[in-house]
Design a protein around this nucleic acid. Structure first.
Length: 891
RNA sequence: GCGAUCAUAGCUCAGCUGGGAUGAGCGUCCGCUUGACGUGCGGGAGGUCACAGGUUCGAUCCCUGUUGGUCGCACCA
């Protein structure tokens, strides 16, 4: 069917229209259907505070490519979408916006504040979803979930209660990371270490003599980076092996300022080699010291308030900020003559990844998840390959974490999030953990119960995402059918936060892994290789790119030349290149449309015409190869390679060669059969190519597909191309090989002869004999070539075509060129001799390999077979080369 | 400190667990209003695949080491 098409492809307007149509037709929706195999991906839920950035764009693009590919392959493909409440991130944003109005969290109270949070969610929660749609994401929006919707809330409570019953969730006084700005505890994963330049203060504590007086001659010297913590010191430690200090163990030193006698203890934690081999022990504010303290029964003294000012345990420093106190304490120690020296020192300091504040280790009562047993199946699953990590190198990173895992601190002193389902009896102090609020205390019967004010770590609910979105804790049909999901696509930066936690949660709650494969991608960086960040202002807004170049071009840019797990740099030049590719495909379609007759019906790609020319068979068999390879790459998650192959095939072979070859048949001859065969092939390969391209460029492929087909049916629900026996022509191998030769020959002519001062023409190979003519077999082949009119011999009478000549068809004239004029025979002979030599080497190599016993005994059978096949191919090629040489030498 | 990973054309990167550098995009130079496309067409220049050893008939690919970069983890107070 003939249709008018614009000269350039402009995605604007088209993309939104198409997306709307897909949504209306419910193409993204999946229902349980036991006649089909499921293929499931759950989206990494973007934060409701989020704005689409390049990281999302990459993540969503990869998922959409996979889901569209599988959908076309006939799977029942479900892409489960949703958003994350992002406890701390959202709370911070809401507080900020309130601040502008001069309101604080406390002014509103818990209820009021939460209302504001829900308002925020209502206002901004949908924004990111709309942005995902701009990308073309084929998520099943009917199933959209939110980590704080009713179902997820139930799931969270259920997990908490169950794990508590099992003893795997407990409340305890342990050392945790505290953010003095956010005023909440955070997990180990949320601590980011950053190098800071500070000082190393060398100081000394005096011994206490046997008579109880403080010595002015005997001291224990050590160094610290955090002098203010001395206020909470409860011991000084040395290594038990350390002979220098053995005699002091058991004695006491006087903690200056606080005037508190503290013991000298021996503990293996102390490194004798480092510094003086003496460490001050502050169990309240250092995780290692906390452990030492536990071993020696030392008291724990917390000297900090929640905002990191010194508390009443800090004596006269009470109320002072931690850094002010540090300076003042150093000053006082100096005055006391106990400061030995100051050294510049750079070390890594833990900061809160959210706000950058230096975290303070503190002992606090918090809720924890016991990890030792929980993590076991998660480790095993990766070890046995039950869960596959792509790329494999991520396994090391994974084990690095799982093997050193500590209990997970899950309580947060925040309001926005899942409230911990624990109540305390005001009368007897009993703790009750239950699915619903208890009315009376089971222990004392008291009715004054207060719920724990804390909420849960955001990642606690995210960890349940793969099954809570499918209906858990209800064992729904969805869950039975779609779980475990197939692939998780995510960045390597959240492997600890999210991926590992989903895995152990999946095994614990479902008894089954949450996904079979994890596909990691890298970071999208700017053109200089820097991380895109708000503070640098170097972020490129994907929405702007979509507006200027189209989502297809953006998607292509994000996925081409990008291997799993690798970071990529983003250049607008690359987007342009992909926009150009879209235009190329558009124009190839235009060319075909212009040549299709006004009243032509759609072609039936199954009705293969009988009279295909060699070039038709060539492109069809090439298409067949590409289908096979691309499918293979897709199955292996090698999307970058897959798309590159389609790109190269469509542009480099289909457009550059096949379309050019076929032009004379459409323009210059009246042979209807030949014309139809060409048009059939053009359309068949184009449509096939569009299908291969569809996962990557969903919009333009849809636009073209619906333009050239008469059906309304969408390309996204069409079937993925498969290898076809009727596109395989073993009996015509020679003719097809000839096309390849011709392509090479023409290249040769174009380059080595430099024939082209400016005229484009078609070469028509003519010969009355059936013999191979140099590179070309007899008749019917047209090729584009740059030919020089001055090099050509004009012959008006076509009957006078000399044996073994090319005809060069210009728009208004036909030129004939003797073979000798087109081919630089000596150069060609030299080239072939080189080729002959190469093949000789290749054959020698192959023979060597196949006679090598070690190779034969060790190599797998298919490899040996492949080598044998190669050898046969080389022999064939050698014969060909020698025959050509013979021919050229006789010319 | 431990571990990972990278080093290929001027730039950014692909390269299927050893067998012709087969490369791509951008840039650059030369030539093209040709009836799909100048968002195009044709062509050229440009690489001792970081360096040094080793294994092998053969190494960009495997091993060891060196140098340089990136990342993760652990940090000694």
């Amino acid at each position: 069917m003939k249709k008018e098409m614009a000269k350039t492809y402009d995605p604007r307007g088209i993309e939104d229209r198409i997306y709307k149509n897909w949504e209306e037709k419910k193409y993204f929706h999946a229902e349980v259907d036991h006649s089909k195999q499921p293929f499931t991906i759950v989206i990494p839920p973007p934060n409701i505070t989020g704005q689409l950035h390049m990281g999302h764009a990459l993540d969503e693009t990869m998922q959409d490519i996979l889901i569209r590919f599988k959908r076309m392959q006939g799977y029942n493909a479900l892409w489960q979408p949703g958003t994350d409440h992002a406890s701390i991130a959202t709370e911070v944003k809401v507080i900020e916006s309130l601040k502008e109005q001069g309101i604080t969290k406390a002014d509103l109270g818990r209820e009021g504040f939460l209302e504001k949070c829900w308002d925020w969610r209502k206002e901004y929660g949908g924004r990111i979803v709309n942005q995902l749609k701009k990308l073309g994401s084929s998520c099943d929006w009917d199933r959209e979930r939110f980590t704080m919707d009713e179902g997820c809330n139930r799931a969270v409570t259920e997990v908490f209660v169950k794990m508590h019953e099992k003893g795997w969730i407990y409340k305890g006084n342990r050392i945790i990371n505290w953010c003095p700005v956010c005023k909440t505890s955070i997990s180990d994963a949320e601590v980011e270490y950053e190098e800071q330049h500070g000082h190393f203060w060398h100081m000394k504590y005096p011994f206490i003599n046997e008579d109880g007086t403080v010595s002015d001659t005997e001291f224990l010297e050590f160094a610290t980076t955090r002098p203010e913590t001395m206020l909470g010191d409860t011991a000084v430690a040395v290594n038990p092996e350390d002979e220098r200090y053995a005699k002091y163990v058991g004695r006491k030193v006087m903690l200056p300022i606080m005037n508190r006698p503290i013991p000298v203890v021996a503990d293996e934690y102390v490194d004798m080699e480092f510094g003086t081999g003496v460490v001050k022990i502050t169990p309240g504010h250092d995780p290692n010291d906390f452990e030492v303290g536990k071993r020696h029964g030392l008291p724990v003294i917390n000297v900090l308030n929640d905002d990191a000012t010194i508390n009443e345990n800090g004596g006269k420093y009470c109320g002072m900020d931690r850094y002010e106190a540090r300076a003042a304490i150093v000053e006082e120690i100096k005055e006391m003559g106990l400061l030995v020296g100051i050294e510049d020192y750079s070390h890594n300091v833990g900061t809160h990844d959210r706000c950058g504040t230096t975290v303070e280790p503190m002992v606090k009562e918090q809720w924890f998840v016991k990890m030792d047993e929980l993590i076991k199946p998660a480790i095993k699953a990766v070890e046995t390959g039950d869960i596959r990590l792509v790329p494999k190198s991520m396994e090391k990173v994974y084990y690095n974490w799982t093997n050193n895992i500590k209990d997970w601190c899950i309580s947060r002193q925040l309001w926005w999030g899942h409230r911990i389902p624990a109540w305390y009896c005001d009368d007897c102090g009993e703790t009750i953990v239950d699915r619903t609020a208890p009315a009376v205390c089971p222990k004392c019967g008291g009715t004054h119960l207060t719920q724990d004010p804390d909420t849960l770590d955001t990642w606690f609910s995210s960890a349940l995402w793969p099954f809570e979105t499918l209906g858990w804790p209800e064992m729904t049909e969805d869950l039975k059918y779609f779980y475990p999901t197939d692939v998780l696509v995510t960045g390597y930066d959240i492997i600890f936060f999210w991926v590992i936690r989903m895995i152990f949660s999946g095994f614990e709650q479902m008894g089954e892994k949450p996904f079979k494969t994890i596909l990691f991608h890298g970071l999208v960086r700017d053109a200089q290789g820097r991380k895109m960040s708000k503070s640098l202002g170097n972020g490129i807004d994907p929405l702007e790119i979509i507006r200027d170049y189209g989502a297809d071009a953006l998607r292509m840019t994000l996925v081409t030349g990008n291997a799993p797990g690798n970071d990529m740099r983003f250049y607008t030049e690359r987007v342009e290149a992909n926009r150009n590719f879209a235009n190329k495909i558009w124009n190839a379609t235009r060319f075909i449309m212009m040549n299709v007759a006004e009243d032509a019906a759609d072609i039936d790609s199954n009705a293969v015409p009988a009279n295909l020319h060699p070039e038709d068979k060539w492109i069809l068999s090439r298409f067949n190869d590409v289908v096979k390879e691309v499918t293979d790459n897709m199955e292996k998650f090698e999307m970058g390679i897959a798309v590159q192959k389609v790109y190269d095939f469509m542009w480099g072979e289909f457009c550059d060669w096949y379309i050019e070859m076929v032009k004379p048949r459409l323009y210059l001859t009246d042979d209807a059969d030949s014309k139809n065969a060409a048009l059939w092939t053009l359309q068949t390969v184009l449509i096939g190519g569009l299908k291969l391209l569809h996962p990557f460029m969903p919009f333009i492929t849809e636009e073209i597909f619906t333009t050239i087909q008469q059906t309304e049916e969408s390309i996204m629900i069409s079937s993925w191309p498969v290898w076809r026996d009727d596109f395989n022509y073993p009996e015509d191998e020679k003719a097809i090989e000839m096309i390849k030769e011709a392509v090479r020959g023409i290249r040769n002519i174009r380059t080595e002869r430099g024939i082209a001062p400016g005229k484009k023409a078609m070469v028509y190979v003519v010969s009355s004999s059936d013999e191979t003519l140099g590179y070309f077999e007899k008749d019917k082949l047209f090729f584009e070539v740059l030919a020089s009119a001055s090099d050509a011999v004009m012959q008006k009478d076509q009957s006078g075509i000399p044996e073994g000549a090319f005809s060069v068809v210009l728009p208004f004239a036909t030129l004939f060129l003797p073979m000798q004029d087109l081919i630089d025979i000596p150069a060609e002979i030299a080239r072939l001799e080189k080729e002959e030599k190469r093949l000789e080497g290749e054959l020698k190599r192959s023979e060597g390999m196949l006679s090598n016993e070690r190779f034969l005994s060790k190599a797998p059978a298919d490899k040996i077979a492949a080598e044998k096949e190669k050898q046969a191919k080389y022999k064939d090629q050698m014969d060909g080369v020698r025959a050509q040489l013979e021919q050229l030498r006789n010319m």
